[in-house]
Design a protein around this nucleic acid. Sequence first.
DNA 1: ATTTACTATTGTCTTTTAGACAACAGTGCT
DNA 2: AGCACTGTTGTCTAAAAGACAATAGTAAAT
Lengths: 302, 302
Amino acid sequence: MDKLRALKYFVNLANTLNFSTTAEHFGVPSSSVSRRIKDLEAELSATLFERTTRTVQLTDLGKVYLLEVSTALQSIEMADELVGAQSKSPTGMLRITAMPAYGERFVLPALEKLRGLYNNIDFDVNLTDQVINLASNDADIAIRSASTLPDNVVARRLCDHQFVLVASPEYVSNNGAPKTSTDLTDRAVFMYRTQHGTLDWLTSREGVWQPLKLNPKFVSNYGQSILDNVLAGRGLALLPNWGVAQDIKADRLLVLELEDGPLSTRGNNSLGMYLLYHPPKFRLQKIRVAVDFLVAELGDGP
Amino acid sequence: MDKLRALKYFVNLANTLNFSTTAEHFGVPSSSVSRRIKDLEAELSATLFERTTRTVQLTDLGKVYLLEVSTALQSIEMADELVGAQSKSPTGMLRITAMPAYGERFVLPALEKLRGLYNNIDFDVNLTDQVINLASNDADIAIRSASTLPDNVVARRLCDHQFVLVASPEYVSNNGAPKTSTDLTDRAVFMYRTQHGTLDWLTSREGVWQPLKLNPKFVSNYGQSILDNVLAGRGLALLPNWGVAQDIKADRLLVLELEDGPLSTRGNNSLGMYLLYHPPKFRLQKIRVAVDFLVAELGDGP
DNA sequence: ATTTACTATTGTCTTTTAGACAACAGTGCT
DNA sequence: AGCACTGTTGTCTAAAAGACAATAGTAAAT
């Protein structure tokens, strides 16, 4: 049985409650509709319509089935429209905001690929640590690490986001690895500057996150420069996992674990990176393709 | 083309990236998978996989398509499971809370019908005006008029919910209809009692909702008794639209419009009635059937 | 560079299934 | 009780998916 066909018949019939009308709508004989519905009912071993030759009525089960199935069919149609070349391609300005380091490294390349797929979408990219308000329409899509999520916003997880303490293998062989957080005070550390000042390294003492007193060798608001210094073996830094994953895999960096627990830059050390959007906007083609594409491109798993 | 079949092949192939494995999974020759995917691509006029005889890779467009389509397929499968008689029918206790008047009048009868469909679901119904916390697991489903929605809860609209000023035709012909809200002070009015006292009638004065000073003839926390009094022509009441819709249609009640704007019992006169649930619970069969059924049964629109 | 092993694709036949069309049957209305 | 309408069933035809064998293309190993 061509079930998709049958389901389309079903949804239409549930609205018209008239086999002939539905048959005409699809340009097939009413006997076909009758048989397909019958097939469906047989497959489910359930009655979807209560019918006499004069009246057709949805059963309660049919109502439940309709509700579930009709949205699914719409999704498939929408998917075809998004991907199908015959449809007019999505058009318009897409305003997207992301955290600078992540944005530069991952979002911008992804957007270049997206531009290749749908070349009628224009981009307005705003890389900032500021929290942009989606509901008030300052951006269509936001990508950021989420601690608390605002209301009325859908969040789709992209990847883990936590800070890890790293150093180069040369640094460790020359200077040894720090054992505890107190070992860090006389180390050369590289720190990140935000709009609100140097980003403190926090350590958890009896459940409370407290800043460490450190004397940074170098502070920058440009993440790559911190990474470059660490790669050159000049010291330690607390960097986001997605920023150092490649270098760790290639053994250019080592992850250092402290005996007295992990460090963090917030009162929480297992955050995620999320893509956020405002649900009503998901109806717009440009938003829909962008969200789907970015989740597929930047997401790392289920 | 049996598109649903093709889509299932597609989703599986997107995971395995291997035609033979996918073919084996469905128990068909790999040539069938190859042809179906080709059909799909032809229909979309798009390339979903980049393939040589040795490697198969999802294209960027394919990733977008996968994301849209796979959830739709899951929905259809889930729908079949819910409705199909061959599956074990949903079982367990369903805890549901609703506002008393609406609950008694609409929710309970709907639950009786639901019990007829799935007789292994047991019900624990709590009719109260208190706001039950879904997140802390005091109920599975809540039905109430929503002004502000709590976080992490999905709301599905059931119907309008606003208060309308009503009187019987006899009352109006004997006493005339009130013209403005000030006309109400010397009228016989019937009011609703909540846990927090008599439910004031509010009127909007220059954008601010203010309570009217009225001398109610009768106050009750049992909505039906108020309605009975109004039907008997003894006075006016401010009652929810869904509670008086039948009587209005049958000309047993008249809706009275005031010249100085509508009345309300909250600082807002166009609320809705919503069904609320906590998304993680939607995976449970009993929750899913109940939500779908209640929305289909009690909902009044698209 | 050449061979090898593996895997997608293509060709052809068979089986399954949807559709067309006509005849039939049940139902609500006059 | 008869009429008009509509869903169902029977039979045939057309289309499409599956089976199976053969082919062609490619990445890796020698």
